[in-house]
Design a protein around this nucleic acid. Structure first.
Length: 198
DNA sequence: ACCGGGATGTTCT
DNA sequence: GAACATCCCGGTG
C-alpha cells in the first residue's frame, strides 16, 4: 500500500456499468489537492433506467456532465447548501454515475477539520456525501473535471488496497423513488459510514 | 441511541 | 410551487 504504487484509475475502469464500477471503487483513494481519503461507501445511479437518477429525464443544464465521457467528476448542489460528487461511468451519453458517500480520511486531516469546524469527532469528517465534499474542498468549480487526467487537481487512485471480497450492500439512502434497488455498497465495519450498520 | 424539524436556494414542473 | 442523491441541533429515553 505504498504511495509509490498509487496510480490514477483509467478511462477503461470507468467505462462500465455504474453497478459494476461502484463496488470496485471501495478502498480506492479520492485525492483533492493535498487532502485524501479512502472510499468506504458508494451508490450507483443507472441513468434513464433509474427514476432516482438525475439523468432519468435526459440532459439538463445541471446534469450535463453525467452525459459526458466516463471518468469525469459530476458535482451537484442540493438542499440549498450542500455539494455532492459522483464519478461518471459507462459510455458517453448514457448518464450513469457513482455517488461517493463516505471516506476514511488519510492525508490533510488538519485542513479537513478546518473545513468542517462543526465536526466534533474524527468520524464525522467524511461520513456522508456532502461532508466529504466539504472536507476535501470539492464544490461546483470542479464539476466536469477529468479524473483520469494527469493534470487534474482531483483524482481517484489505486494504491494497491483491493476492494473487499464481500462488501456490505443495501438499498440507497435518502430517496423517495426507486427505494428498493440494492445499489449501495460499503466497507463492512468501517467507522466512517454515513449510517451505522444493522 | 433515536427521532423530529429547520436551514437554505437551485432546479424542474 | 414542490421537491431535493443532506446535515445539524435540540429534544427525549
Amino acid at each position: 500500500m505504498g504511495d509509490r504504487h498509487a496510480r490514477r484509475l483509467t478511462p477503461d475502469f470507468y467505462r462500465r456499468d455504474s453497478r459494476v464500477v461502484a463496488p470496485e471503487l471501495l478502498n480506492k483513494v479520492l485525492v483533492c489537492g493535498n487532502r485524501s481519503g479512502r472510499i468506504v461507501e458508494v451508490e450507483a445511479y443507472a441513468g434513464s433506467a433509474d427514476p432516482a437518477s438525475h439523468a432519468y429525464r435526459g440532459p439538463t443544464k445541471r446534469n450535463l456532465t453525467m452525459f459526458g465521457p466516463p471518468g469525469r467528476l459530476y458535482v451537484y448542489f442540493t438542499y440549498g447548501m450542500h455539494w455532492c460528487a459522483n464519478a461518471v461511468c459507462d459510455e458517453e451519453g448514457r448518464g450513469l454515475a457513482v455517488l461517493l458517500r463516505a471516506l476514511s480520511p488519510i492525508e490533510g486531516r488538519d485542513e479537513m477539520r478546518q473545513a468542517r469546524s462543526r465536526a466534533r469527532r474524527e468520524r464525522d469528517l467524511c461520513s456522508g456525501p456532502a461532508k466529504l465534499c466539504q472536507a476535501l474542498g470539492i464544490d461546483g468549480r470542479l464539476d466536469g473535471v477529468d479524473l483520469t487526467s494527469q493534470d487534474a487537481i482531483v483524482s481517484i487512485v489505486d494504491d494497491g488496497v483491493v476492494p473487499p471480497s464481500e462488501p456490505g450492500q443495501s438499498c440507497r439512502i435518502g430517496l423517495s423513488v426507486a427505494t428498493e434497488e440494492p445499489w449501495r455498497w460499503y466497507v463492512a465495519g468501517d467507522p466512517n459510514l454515513s449510517r451505522a450498520e444493522r
